[in-house]
Every structure is written in C-alpha cells, then in structure tokens.
Amino acid sequence: MILHSRRRVFHGLAFTGLWVIGLGTFTAYPVLASLYYSFCDYSILQRPVWIGVENYRQLLGDDVFWLSLRNTLFFTMLSVPVGCVLSLSLAVLLNCEVRGRAIFRTFFYLPSIVPAVASSMLWLWIFNGEYGVLNQALGPLLRPLGISPPAWLGDPAWAKPALVLMSLWGVGNSVIIYLAGLQDVPRELLESAELDGAGPLRRFWHVTLPLISPVIYFNVVMGMIGAMQVFTQAFIMSGGPDGNPARSTLFYALYLYSTAFYDLRMGYASAMAWVLFILIAGLTWVAGRVAARRVHTSS
C-alpha cells in the first residue's frame, strides 16, 4: 500500500515537476527577488546594495508617481464600469432569439483576437484629429452647435477618454462570459415572473441581474486588474513611455517601465511593482467586500 502511494506521488511529481520547476524559476523566484530588490539600490548590472525602505520613501515624494497613479485610477474608474455596462448590454442583445445570432456573436468577439499592437495602430488612424474617421463622422454633427471635435490623442484633456473608448473595442471576452451567465438563468424563474406580470425590464432587474451578479463580480474584478496594468495601447498610441501629450497618458505601468529600462533604476521600479500589487490586492478585497453584500449566491 505504502509502495503504491509512493509510486502515485512519484508519478504525480513526474507529471508536474517540469511545471513546478518552471513556475519556481520563471515566476516565484523573480517575484521574490523583486521584493528583495525593492529594498535595494539596484541597476540590474551591478550588485544590489541594501538601502532599506529608501525606495518606498522616495515614492511618497515622487509627484510623477502620483500623477501616473491618478491617470491609472481615472482610466480604471472610467473603463471598467463603461465596459461592464456595454458588454452586459451586448450580451443581453446577443442572447435574444434572432436570426443570424451566431454571426453577430462572432462579429462582436472578433476584435478581441486582434493583437493589441495591430488594433492600436488602427485606432491611431481612427483618432487622427484631421483625417480620422471618428472626427469625419463627428464634424458634421457638431458643426451646427459651433463645436469642433477634439484632437483626441493630441489633446491632454481627451487623450485618456480616447484610450477608454478604444478599450471598449475589446469587450468581446466579457460578452462571452456574460452570455454564458445569461444562459444559466433558469427559464422557469423568468416565466414565473412573467406570469406575475413583470415586464422585460423588471424581469431583467429583479431576476436576471441578481442571478448573474457573480459573473458581473468576476468581470469587474478581472477588468480592474487589467486596467490597473494598462500598458500596450498607451505605449504605442502615445509614442513611447512618456505618456504624451504632457504626461496625460502616463499610466503606472509606463512609468514603471521607463524607470526600470530607461533609467535603469530596477530597485525603485521593483518598489513600484510591489505598491501596484498591494493596490490591486486592496481593490480586489474591497470589491470582494462589496460583493459579499450584493452578489447573489445559490446557497
């Protein structure tokens, strides 16, 4: 019996060993090393020198750090709720019994599989202030009101909202998850509500929404984690790590990247990475506390 169970352990380790080694070498070790480096003066090319909490102390007084944090929170607070409402609305529409439903579902999912760099290049043209398709469409609508459409990525006031708008392009993933949730809503509950005289809006508000609240919770948390780490779109669309124009799109991950790889301050960047980790963990905890009161669970 003991021999048998030992053999099972051996087999288990044989199958997972490579993965465990990979995880340990390429994830766990770098993560723990970055925690150590966050307390060091470290440029990646020299030995780390222990400086205690100096990096964290400098972060408190670094106004570009605070600016990048504000920019990131603005992006998160705008893109996550708007993305959530849009993707849920799309999912509800795609859940309707209409002809060609599968085609519509594919159509809305397609942008999610376009690589971020390719879609960023496309959106650069869409947002072009003079020739962009967006302003070509908005121009005639706004002209009678005496307003000109904004220069989007060229205007510090509009650059972040432009990136939020662009982020909506990739809602296909969460639409699919919402769709799965909507299809799990028991038909008999909706029918009972209908028999009790509830209209479509009341059925959605009082039956569907509570039943898919765990899915909403999941999508909000995942969206928030992604938005706090926004990098690729901003890097490409602002033309580098500076967050142009005038640092209006300098997000946390961009500042972290330029600190690490342009200024070669790996210790300081590690401290920033840990602060971001704690922030995301904190926000997720808050979302969890809110969910505990609001999210419907079958138990």
Partner: peptide, 10 residues
C-alpha cells in the same frame, strides 16, 4: 492651441 492640435494631428 486648438487649431495647431488639429493641424498637427493630421
């Protein structure tokens, strides 16, 4: 500023 932004964004 606005005219320049629109012009240069093209």
């Amino acid at each position: 500023s606005d005219s320049l932004q629109r012009f240069t964004s093209g």
